[in-house]
Each structure stands twice: as C-alpha cells, then as structure tokens.
Design a protein around this nucleic acid. Structure first.
Length: 899
DNA sequence: CTGTGATACTATTCTTTGAGGTTA
DNA sequence: TTAACCTCTTTGAATAGTATCACA
C-alpha cells in the first residue's frame, strides 16, 4: 500500500508527469498526455480541487467530456480563454488514458493543496531518490502496444470517476443548452427568422384570439404549429451532425483516428449567421425553430434530451460492443448512397452534397471513429426500424439517431398544456410518448429531458417523454446513485424560477400522475429498485414486507421453471432491526411485540474463551420501528446515576440521558467529579473497532443535575490550570529551541571570524540557506522576511519579535516578556478539549491555524527555526520530524514513505 | 433483441466494553 | 507504586453489487 502511494505521489510531481514511461498495468499503446496539457489545465484558473478532478476526467477519456458539451456550448470569449477546449481540438487523440491510470492519481487528489505547500519548502533533494520507484511498476513498451480485450477490472475509483464525469458532463450540457436558449431570445436572430416566416394567417393561428371558443382556439393553435413546423422543415437544411450520446472508450487505439466533423464550437455570431442561412445540424435547427416560435409570439421552450457520459459500466455502448456491432454492420451495409441520391429534391434549395460530411469513410476508420467520438462520428447504424422519411428540404445525416435530441414545447393556452414539436426529425406535433428512442438506439439515450423556458428557467420534464421512467429511465440517471438525486436537484435549483406559475403547477401534477400511471413492470429487472413496487426476492436481510398487500404478480424464470411472484408495494417494505440495534438508536421494543422476521447470527467466540466452538449460531428476532418506543432510562435518584454492568452509562443518543441527570461531555469531567466527590457514570457514546476488538468510546460523564454548577466550576478551574501548564511547557520548549538556534548562529559566527567566510550551504549542510533566510528575516528585508512578518502580524506576534530585537533573546534574560503573548494566545485559541497552543511542532501536525514560528510551518519559508532532519540530532524531540511532515492533518504515516 | 439466471469477482457491512508494556 | 498512555493487531464471514455470458 505504502509503495503504491509513494508511486502515486511521485507521479504527480511535475518532473515525472507525462513522461513517456509511466507505470501502468494495462497496455494502451498510446502516447501519454504531454506536460503542457497538464500545465495548461492547471493554469486554466480553476481551484485546486476542481482542477484536480477535471484533470483526471480529461485523462480518462476527457475528449468526450469536453467535446460533447463544450465546443457547441462555448461563446467565443469562453472558447478562447478555455484552454482545455483548444487543446482538445488540436490533438484530440493524444490522451487515451486508461481508467486505472487515472485512478491512481485520484487517490491523491486530496493532497493537491498540500503538495503545493510541500513544493514551497525545498524538498527536491529528498524527492529525487524516489523517482527510481517508478521503474518498479513499469511495463515493457511491447506490452503497452498490445490491445487487450481481457476482462476489465472495475474498481471503486473507476466507478467514482465515471460518476463524477457524468455529473460534470451534465453540468456542461446544462450550461450549453442554457446558452443556446439565451441566443434564441436574441432580437436579431428572431428578426431574421420572423422576416422569412411572416404570415398573418400563421401568426393569428399561433395566437388565437382569446374570445374564440376553447375548442376553436386549440384547433387553430395546433394548425398553426403544424404549418410553421412544415415550413421550417422545408426551409432548414441539415448539413451537419448534431449531438449524440457519447461513449466511454477503453482499449481502442486512437492514434490512427482522425477528427470527423460535427457541430462545431459556435459563437453567437455563428448562430446569427445560421438564422440567415438556415443550415446546420438538426440541433441548431431545433434551436432556431424555438427562436422562430418565440418571435411569432408563441411561448416556447427549448427541450433537450441531455446525453451525458453514462456512469454505468454496462456493456451496451462500450467500445467492445460498439466495435463488434459496427464491424458486423460494416459487412452487410454497403457504402450508403450519397446524400444527394438519397434525398432527391426538386426544391429550389436542393443542393444536398455536403462538403462537411463524406459518407464514404473507410470502414476501418469508421470503426475507430465509432469509439473515438461520442456523437458525431459514431457510425453504428441504429438497428431500429426507420419509420421517418427524411424531411423535404432536409437531409438525413447517415446513422444519426431517428429520434431528436433537441425539440420544442409550445404552450397551448387553450388546453393549458405543453405541446411538443419536432420539425426536423420526427416531424411531429404532440405525441410526447413518441419521442423516446428505443433502448437499442446507441446514439440517443433518453435519461434527462430538460425544458428551457424563455426566461432561462429549467424544468425536468423527463417523465413526460420517458415511457418507463420508474422502471428504466431512473436507472440511467443520478437518481439511481447515492446522493445523486440530490445533486441533480441542486443543479436544477440553479435554473429554477423560484416561484411557480399556474402552468408549472398544472405541469407538475401532470408529470406526477404520468409517473404513477406507469403500471407494474413485467420483468424482474425492472422491479429491482423500483420506487413503487417491490419483490420479496430483492429484499435485504433487514427488510420485510409488512403488511403483505399484493398488488400484482410477475412471471419469472423461463419455460418450465417459470414461477409467478407476487409484487408488493415499496411503501410496505420495512426496515427491521434487532432489539440491540434499536437500543443503540435509543429505542426499545414495546412489550408484547412479536418479531417480524428471524435471522440467524453467528455468535463470536469471546475473548478468553479459546477452544470453545465459535460457529455456534443463534436466532435473533427483528422488529420494525412501529414496534418500538423511545427508551426511557432509569432516572437519577438521590444523586446516584444508574450504571450498566460495565460501570458506565450508554448515551448513544441524547434521549438516553436519564431524567434528573446531565451529560457533561468533557474529557476532564471525570476528574472534576472525583474532586467534588459526587456520583457519576462515564458516558459511552459509541464504539470503535480495532481488529476484532471493540472498545467503548467514552465522552465525559453523566452526573445528577443538582451538581451541574459545582462540576462546571471545578471543570473551569481544571481547564484553566491545564492551559497554563501547557503554555508554560510550550514556552519552555520554545525557549529551548531558540537557545539552540542562537547557539548555532554564534558558532557559525565564531567559525567565520576565525576561519573566514563560509560558503553558503556548504560546510553547514542544510543550515546555510536557512540561516541566510533567517538573517534576512532578521534584517527585515527579503521575501522570506515579508512572509514571516505577514504571518507574524496575523498571529499577533510582532510584539514578541520586537522584544527579541530589543535583545531579550534567551529565556533566562527575559522570561516574563516571552511568556505572556504565548499564554494569551494559546488561551484565546483553546476550546477546552484539545486546545492548540500553536507553538510547538506537535501542534502544527494537528491544527492548521497554528502560529508560524517553528520548523514545519509552511507559511514561513524563511525557516525560522533550525530544521529538524539532518541537523538536529539531539535537542529537538525526535518526533519533530514527523510533525513537520504531517502538516497535512489527513496525511497518515504511509505518506511518510514518500520521503 | 431482450430478459433471465448462473457465475465470478469485489466491495461493504457486521461486529459492538483489551492486554500488556512503558512512562511519568 | 500507580495511573496514564501507547502499541499491538487485523478478522473474517455474510451480504451486496456489478459485469459477463449463455440461452430461451
């Protein structure tokens, strides 16, 4: 473990980053991300943690991440300042890193901040020997070249990465669509469109007079929508691919690939141009159609079925399955007819030879492309039926999904409902249920459908379009992951209106009822984790169905093994616990309750009973929460606190404090209670497990209420006494170090006087540089000094410094002057329990805000005190070493191996 | 094509009140 | 002499979750 960590850290050092021979366990045969890529990513101005994550995503197939959402989403300003995008477009094939590679780096993502700190301190000499560690895990170049299809090992980190990428991609897509939606409101864009589609009948149909009957208004509105849809279909030319579902790639060699066209990054100006030329991807077509409707007075939403990178590892859509199906298709499908022959148009607009897209890409290339690019270059043909005739005036881009990614919803005032309109792909007005692509459509997966209103607000309308939202669609969404739903809702919150319009409420209830009306799924897989229904077979060990109210049945098994299983309601699935588990939650079983379930538990061999059988098992009854009530502990009587068999008291939850008693969760409360001589019981609040051994976590004591004031008084005295002692101790220690330090300086001075100038950094080993800094700091010049002054000022230590300058250096000279600021400070900071006086190395290890005075303080590059390692072989406590290195509180001892 | 069940593998959960030596 | 502190160790087994494959 430590070895691996050591490697990780080394890899993230700039010196090793991106080297040609990085350790990896799986061959890739692809070049590694160049240094400049990493650096530019880091420079891109995002915070450390964000940057860290982003970098990893990029390494791990980041091409997809960025490309799908960003290029189309970025305005020129953004695009030009966003280096990842630029880079990506320059050399998109240069980073096919493996997931595992990225994993290893993810491990130390938490340490990024600290690494910066470490680099401030000059530790390079210490690091150098470590670079040899790299060689240990290197594979031979030959091995790297060989593409493997061996079974992937999926680690937790892999999964986390996918999940994070999924989220990031979602975020990008949302911002992207949001931006396009904003452009749809552009006056010039709308004017361009309106000019070409201005038609009084049309406009009056789309905005039927309110005095008409509802039916009539509805009819006219729908007629108007159909007309404008048809018009648009005739006039808009699809010349490019639009957004499509992206894929993860794992083992495909990308070095031979080349970029396909696709919806390019687009500026507002380009958007404006497109509103003139009426050409572009079908996505662009839908966006402009939205602008058109808005310009004609219709309340229109831009709808996008977001296509984020999937977070699951399911085979469908992975490279393997893709290339397999691709190659299969490749044989049977002869080169497709050119767009021209396919759409023989006699319209005046007909010029369907598309310079941007050559349908006759060689098969080999196509396969690579299929796995390379998310949307724009997948050449897998959708195996679904092809019911949709290419629009007149539009051209079907080969192998694009038969279902739209973008479309429009128009608000029908007459019926108070949103009407979906897709002019270019489905050619439909209404029929929300027809917008969901079949599961076999590899280029289009419906998981999140977001509706962007004119003002920029967003609604999740997936349930309107997904026909099996609970059974299937949910599982593709963050809803299926832990905490994921919350994340998605949080994201949506950024785009919410903040208050509901009437039409929102109507829509909400419509969506809710659609979800409820979904019915019972017919397959076992769909019933798993279904929010409304449950099967007994999927129950966990600590779950029961109670009461058992069958709501349906499903046939499972095949052929003769078919069995009918009963379907229950999810709300009847209850979590059950043993009496002991309930007790730990502060509840006990009501009298007379019978367990809902029995499970067998293996009884452990207890300590000291060696030789006895340890596989003896017993049955435990489990109870649901409604069978329990709050545990009421026996009250404190006559100042005596009730105790358990261990002589302490269980306080797992606050309600377990007995009546008449009070919990004082302070470490020194025991001592205080003993001093007063009152009865008390130590409070057990949890357990911690070391190996097989569980030991109680004791937090303070429980005493009788009437002694509270007395106890606190004594406690206060103890605390302040302790603080003083601490301060004294720390002060002494500090003095000792100062003395030592000064002694060193004097020796140095003497040597110089007697033997002439000593060259910096030579005869004094590590001392030279530090000493120089110190001298500079002392003089009040130099960067280090400024740094130090700054931190000293922040810590209120300048008084101390002045005292020193006044000559009171040694403790025996002016002990009282030194002591006061230290004590004050440590007292002010202390919180009672683990107060950090902030002067000694051990404090630095644990507390961030400690003052900058001693070795190991990363704020003070000047190295104000003698450095521990290498210099100090006697005086400084030996664990100084460790304290310094452990400036990061999260860093465990394993990290020390790194040094 | 899709769903199912078997299999292989990994991750997570469950457990839930020391002993022995050293130091101050 | 005693109390406080430190170190030692590490244990599976059951369960849950995921991917993959063959097959109906």
């Amino acid at each position: 473990m430590s070895g691996r960590r050591a490697l990780n850290r080394t890899q993230t050092q700039p010196s090793n980053r991106g080297g040609p021979a990085r350790g990896r366990r799986r061959p890739t045969g692809v070049p590694v991300l160049p240094d400049v890529y990493q650096e530019m990513l880091r420079e891109s101005g995002v915070g450390a943690s964000v940057a860290g994550k982003k970098r990893r995503k990029v390494e791990n197939g980041g091409d997809e991440v960025i490309d799908t959402a960003w290029p189309t989403a970025l305005e020129p300003a953004v695009a030009s300042s966003s280096k990842p995008v630029q880079l990506q477009r320059e050399k998109p094939w240069e980073k096919p890193e493996l997931v595992e590679e990225a994993d290893e780096e993810l491990d130390d993502s938490d340490d990024d901040d600290n690494e910066v700190d470490w680099e401030d301190v000059d530790l390079t000499t210490v690091l150098e020997p470590e670079s040899g560690v790299l060689e240990v895990t290197l594979n031979s170049p030959g091995e790297m070249k060989r593409p493997t299809l061996e079974r992937r090992k999926i680690t937790v980190v892999d999964q986390k990465i996918r999940l994070e990428v999924h989220k990031l991609h979602l975020l990008c897509l949302m911002v992207h669509v949001s931006r396009r939606n904003k452009w749809c409101n552009n006056k010039q864009v709308q004017e361009n469109l309106r000019r070409r589609f201005k038609d009084d009948t049309l406009i009056s149909n789309l905005n039927p007079a309110p005095q008409l009957y509802q039916l009539e208004r509805n009819t006219r509105f729908l007629r108007g929508l159909t007309e404008v849809k048809n018009l648009w279909r005739r006039k808009f030319w699809i010349t490019r691919r639009g957004l499509a579902r992206p894929f993860w790639l794992d083992t495909v060699d990308l070095s031979k690939s080349q970029r396909d066209d696709g919806d390019p990054p687009m500026s507002k100006g380009d958007f404006l141009d497109a509103s003139q030329s009426l050409t572009g991807s079908r996505d662009l077509g839908a966006q402009l159609f939205c602008a058109l409707l808005r310009s004609l007075g219709v309340t229109a939403r831009l709808i996008c079925s977001l296509q984020p990178m999937p977070f699951s590892f399911a085979q469908k859509g992975t490279t393997q399955s893709l290339s397999r199906s691709t190659s299969k298709k490749e044989e049977s499908v002869s080169p497709l007819p050119s767009a021209a022959s396919r759409a023989p148009l006699k319209e005046p607009f007909a010029s369907p030879v598309l310079p941007q897209y050559d349908p006759r890409i060689p098969a080999a290339q196509r396969e690579v492309l299929a796995s390379l690019r998310p949307a724009s270059c997948t050449t897998v043909q959708s195996p679904s039926r092809t019911p949709h005739v290419p629009a007149r005036g539009t051209i079907m881009i080969k192998n694009e999904s038969q279902y739209p990614v973008y479309w429009i919803e128009a608000w029908n005032v007459a019926t108070q409902g949103w009407v979906p309109v897709d002019p270019l792909v489905l050619n439909k007005v209404g029929c929300a249920s027809r917008f969901e692509p079949p599961q076999s459509d590899l280029n289009n997966v419906m998981s999140y459908v977001a509706a962007f209103e004119e003002e920029g607000h967003v609604k999740d309308v997936t349930r309107r379009y997904a026909n099996n939202y609970n059974a299937k669609t949910r599982k593709l969404r963050l809803n299926a992951t832990k905490g994921g739903e919350l994340w998605w809702l949080n994201l949506l919150r950024l785009f919410e209106r903040g208050w509901d319009l009437d039409r929102d409420q109507v829509e909400d209830s419509e969506l809710a009822s659609k979800e409820l009306g979904e019915g019972i799924p017919s397959s076992v897989a769909d019933l798993k984790d279904h929010p409304l229904f449950a099967l007994k077979r999927h129950l966990r060990r600590n779950q029961v169905i109670y009461p058992e109210r069958p709501v349906g049945s499903v046939t499972t098994g095949i052929g003769s093994k078919a069995v009918i299983e009963t379907v229950y309601r999810r709300q009847d699935v209850k979590t059950v616990r043993s009496p002991m588990q309930w007790y730990r939650l502060g509840r006990e079983i009501k009298t007379g309750e019978q367990p809902l379930k029995h499970i067998t538990v293996r009884k452990r061999k207890r300590h000291g009973e060696a030789g006895e059988e340890d596989d003896e098992s017993g049955e435990t009854g489990l109870y649901a929460i409604f069978q329990t009530e709050e545990y009421i502990p026996p009250p404190v009587a006559d100042g005596m606190v009730p105790k358990n068999s261990f002589g302490n008291i269980d306080i797992y939850v606050p309600s377990m404090v007995p009546k008449g008693g009070i919990h004082v969760p302070h470490k020194d409360a025991v001592r205080a209670a003993k001093i007063i001589g009152i009865d008390f019981a130590e409070a057990v609040t949890a357990f911690e497990h070391k190996g097989r051994q569980a030991s109680a976590v004791i937090k303070g004591v429980v005493i009788a209420e009437q002694y509270q004031a007395a106890l606190y008084a004594v406690l206060g005295a103890i605390i302040s006494e302790k603080k003083e002692e601490d301060a004294e101790k720390k002060s002494l220690e500090n003095m000792r170090l100062w003395k030592r330090f000064l002694l060193g300086l004097r020796i140095r001075e003497r040597i110089e006087n007697e033997y002439g100038d000593v060259k910096e950094g030579e005869s004094l080993g590590g001392w030279g540089r530090k000493r120089q800094s110190i001298i500079e700091a002392d003089k009040g010049k130099g960067k280090a000094s400024q740094l130090w002054r700054k931190s000293a000022e922040a810590e209120g230590l300048l008084d101390l410094e002045q005292n020193q300058e006044a000559g009171g250096f040694m403790r025996e000279d002016k002990p009282e002057v030194r002591r006061e600021p230290i004590s004050l400070r440590s007292l002010a900071k202390g919180d009672g329990e683990n107060d950090a006086g902030g002067f000694l190395p051990e404090d630095i290890a644990g507390v961030d805000e400690t003052g900058g005075f001693l070795p190991g303080d990363t704020d003070c590059d000047a190295g104000f005190m003698p450095e521990g390692p290498g210099i100090d072989d006697s005086g400084v406590k030996s664990d100084d070493d460790e304290s310094m290195l452990s400036a990061d509180p999260d860093m465990d001892n394993e990290d020390l191996d790194w040094f």
